[in-house]
Write a protein that binds this DNA or RNA. Structure first.
Length: 554
RNA sequence: GCGCCUGUAGCUCAGUUGGAUAGAGCAACGGACUUCUAAUCCGUGGGCCGAGAGUUCGAAUCCCUCCAGGCGCACCA
């Protein structure tokens, strides 16, 4: 609808310019918005104000010209008004809102789906925690944000893949194997001093115990390096399987798990570095190889091959991103913890050296979660084994509440997550407010069914019976749903959807308390029942994008 | 020291790429169930938008300088 109004204003503008009424070459960026105050109309445009300086005329005067020449081929405008410093306010005909009910019925689960993506291939890479321990609360936020951004883009018409990058080739993995070996020896009666830089969580002991149960003590006699490699592989596999389980129960499913090891096959990384060296993006100082990231705005050049001959994480990461592009993705979205923000210029430099546009790689920083228990900070460290796992949060708070909690905030805002508060408030969590609205509607529809009132279609009802203030409000909010999706997808800001849902549910609850849907008035009952069914569709569509359940009973 | 993020009601946060009188939830207080679910609704109070200066018709939003908190500044990932 917003787009329609904007087009209408643009067309009018062109006509006015062609007719010599306005002397302006082109239309500057103009806005069409839903005003905060309903008295300012259904939509408002600032077109006259942005034109004022160029045309050198009073904004109100310009607004008058546009108003007088307004083209309205679909005949949707009831009236217009010039207000304030030069706003042009639009009041739409009632039939426009009623018509959205019809559109929702036609489109059902497709309502809100857009085509701005043009089926372009997009990849969202997120979580990507190395499998050295279970996922914790800190990973949860990034997991949900990535998942919902993927859902959003899909809804907006992109062809989306979700990918998890498994960092299973580095030092940390070696540490993991070592940690298991220490516990292994310990469990077999050896007295050991457990090193501080090893992983100390109980899950390491479980892995060691499993190995003992399956293979006994035979590894004690074997070559240590080989054993560590073995244990690394075993532990990595076990832990990754657990990570996948946790994610699945959190409602997050990936299309691909991409192993870092894959990049090293057939000398992939080395070949890439060779080719970059030929292009003079990489130089040697005799001991190490450096990437000239400063050529693309980084503050210093970065090492890609260490003194000891091993490539850095960065080297593999360039290869990884090249691999992404070679798989045909036109837009790549990386979701990172905000503690990695310093890494952005480096990676952007990397992909630009590969000939890719900086804009094609979008990096979403998700601020770290500040975990509290009853107001006291909880230390979080995978290595020390001190952390609250995603699994625990799922058990305590529940999937829907946890997801909604993370989705309500902008991803770049810092977030306190107090476990005690989350538990205590679980019954008054905003997610229930929305789900309750859904359940109530289901309940009404069920009641109608029990009374043998058939669910009407748009053709069966008289939409002009829906005249209550809240009924008009509900229709307007529902009409705004597609543009809400549009805005959230364009800015990659999932939090807009919970806010939208909260508003829709709020007006519904208010309406519910004031009005009976099912009454003796047959025509009115039919019209209202129909509207309930459309609200249910919108709620369900939006909740689905969030990956939050829509229960029919609560 | 340098860079990035944040600062809005008592608390947690929105504020649609500069718009009209800055909003919501929670908490507080007062009301509403003989009714399609009271996990709801109705009402009341609550603000120097961190501070200061600037840009213009107009600033919570943009520029600059400070202050406070968080996170980075590896041949770790």
């Amino acid at each position: 609808m917003k787009i329609k109004i904007a087009k209408l204003v643009e067309d009018t503008f062109r006509n006015c310019v062609a007719g010599g009424l306005i002397s302006a070459a082109n239309l500057p960026y103009m806005e069409v918005e839903v005003p905060g105050n309903p008295e300012h109309g259904d939509y408002a445009s600032n077109v006259a104000m942005v034109l004022a300086s160029q045309v050198k005329q009073n904004p109100r005067k310009i607004a008058e010209i546009i108003q007088a020449n307004l083209v309205d081929p679909e005949n949707i405008i009831a009236k217009t008004q010039i207000a304030g410093p030069g706003f042009l306010n639009f009041y739409l005909k009632e039939s426009v809102w009623q018509n959205t009910l019809c559109v929702i019925e036609e489109q059902k689960e497709e309502y809100g789906c857009l085509d701005i993506g043009g089926a372009q291939k997009v990849q969202v890479e997120f979580v990507s925690a190395n499998p050295t321990g279970p996922l914790h609360i800190g990973h949860a936020r990034g997991a949900v944000v990535g998942d919902v951004i993927a859902n959003l883009l899909k809804t907006a018409g992109y062809s989306v893949d979700r990918e998890y990058y498994i960092n299973d080739a580095g030092n940390q993995m070696n540490n993991l194997g070592k940690s298991v070996l220490f516990r292994y020896r310990e469990l077999l009666g050896e007295k050991i001093e457990f090193p501080e830089n090893c992983y100390q969580g109980d899950y390491i002991k479980h892995v060691a115990q499993d190995i003992i149960e399956k293979a006994g003590s035979k590894y004690l006699a074997q070559n240590e390096e080989e054993t560590i490699r073995n244990f690394t592989a075993i532990a990595g596999e076990v832990i990754l399987a657990e990570i996948k389980d946790d994610l699945r129960d959190f409602g997050v499913m990936f299309d691909y798990y991409f192993s870092e090891k894959e990049l090293y096959k057939n000398d992939g990384v080395a070949k890439l570095l060779d080719s970059l060296q030929k292009q003079e993006f990489i130089y040697s100082d005799g001991e190490t190889l450096w990437f000239k990231t400063t050529a693309f705005g980084d503050e210093k050049d970065r090492v890609v091959v260490r003194k000891n001959g091993e490539p850095t994480y960065f080297a593999a990461d360039i290869a990884y991103h090249l691999n992404k592009y070679s798989r045909g993705y036109k837009m790549i979205i990386d979701i990172w913890g905000a503690d990695h923000h310093g890494y952005m210029p480096r990676l952007w430099a990397g992909i630009q050296a590969l000939g890719q546009e900086k804009e094609s790689l979008k990096i979403i920083l998700v601020q770290l979660v500040n975990l509290l228990r009853a107001g006291e900070p909880v230390a979080m460290s995978t290595r020390s084994g001190e952390f609250v796992t995603l699994r625990e949060v799922l058990d305590e708070v529940g999937k829907d509440a946890a997801r909604y909690n993370f989705l309500m905030r902008r991803s770049d805002s810092h977030l306190d997550f107090d476990l005690e508060v989350a538990k205590k408030q679980s019954n008054e969590n905003p997610v229930f407010y929305v789900q309750y609205a859904y359940a109530r509607i289901c309940s009404i529809l069920k009641m109608a069914e029990e009374r043998d009132i058939a669910l009407p279609t748009y053709k069966d009802i008289d939409p002009y019976l829906l005249q209550e203030t809240d009924e008009i409000k509900l229709m307007k909010i529902m009409a705004r749903y597609p543009e809400t999706i549009y805005g959230a997808a364009r800015t990659l800001e999932p939090h807009r959807i919970p806010f939208y849902l909260n508003e829709l549910a709020g007006v519904f609850h208010s309406y519910y308390n004031k009005n009976k849907v099912i009454s003796d008035n047959k025509e009115l009952t039919a019209a209202r029942l129909f509207m309930m069914s459309t609200i249910r569709i919108v709620l369900q569509n939006a909740l689905k994008i969030l990956g939050v359940g829509s229960p029919e009973k609560m």
